[in-house]
Nucleic acid binder design. Structure first.
Lengths: 149, 149
DNA sequence: GAAGATTGACGGCTCAATCTTG
DNA sequence: CAAGATTGAGCCGTCAATCTTC
């Protein structure tokens, strides 16, 4: 006998799923000395030919300017990234992948992609579009509510 | 012309939705001087007649023992909770809601529930069961993968 | 003044180490 | 030795304040 799920059940399930994503990500990247935040930056830079404005990163990652700064400090210290001056606007910063950073990404990326396929491939192709739609619907409702708060 | 969503798209959508949940939660609780972690504890205690073993909280919140300790320190300092000795096992701690904690919960809970209904009510009743199922499927795949890592 | 970046303060999470109790 | 709780260190996120540059 299953109870009909109410809105609150959806919230709990969403939180628990996200918690599992974080746990797995952290455990996966840890042997490489990376965190998921750091890998996301490595990943974005790699698909952009290893060169990006820091501002573009902030937009893509939906994260505050402050967070990026500190994470990048650590990645620079680990010789994965390099900061360069912007040619036209001296306020901005260009981020450049170092050889070590690119090498690390090349080593991780295939396994990472395989893992994403394996886990999120459990949603059958027919259900992906509706599932995506529901997540988008929720996100819009959340942002709407956030706006008039 | 819409591209068929691949597994990676689902991951991105899930992360963005969770990010929106956190943003809204933080903004909602902030005027009450609470964080969402603190409200979740307040909430669990309230539905358990204001009295719980700390161990039960750790299990329910899927969080490490360390995290709870510090959050509870702050809530005790804010006079929302009280630590009591366990009658049978002196290693354990019992958490008890103070009058101030119960009062705060009574003030917040109705608005909170209304917000959850409004946001997660955007998923139509017919879609809730499948949506929940997909989240559960993902969570199991994530935990399976985490286990053999 | 506004925009981009950085730093500091604070909350929350993890893990490892420690302490007390069973 | 194992279990429950706590603390400390490290990472990430927020916001507010500051600095440089537009």
């Amino acid at each position: 006998m299953e109870r009909k799920p109410n809105p609150h059940d959806l919230l709990v399930a969403l939180l628990q799923t996200q918690s599992a994503v974080e746990r797995l990500s952290d455990a996966f990247f840890q042997p490489f000395g990376l965190t998921s935040a750091q890998f996301n930056i490595l990943n974005l830079l790699s698909v952009n030919s290893g060169r990006m404005e820091q501002l573009a990163l902030v937009d893509a990652l939906l994260v505050g300017k402050s967070s990026i700064s500190i994470v990048i400090n650590r990645m620079v210290r680990a010789d994965l990234l390099r900061r360069e001056a912007h040619p036209r606007d001296r306020r901005q910063v260009i981020l450049v992948l170092t050889p070590k950073g690119r090498g690390l990404w090349k080593k991780i990326a295939p396994t990472y992609e395989a893992g994403v396929q394996e886990v999120f491939g459990t949603i059958t192709p027919a259900r992906r579009q509706p599932f995506l739609l529901e997540l988008t619907t929720l996100r819009e409702a959340l942002n709407r509510r956030l706006a008039d708060l």
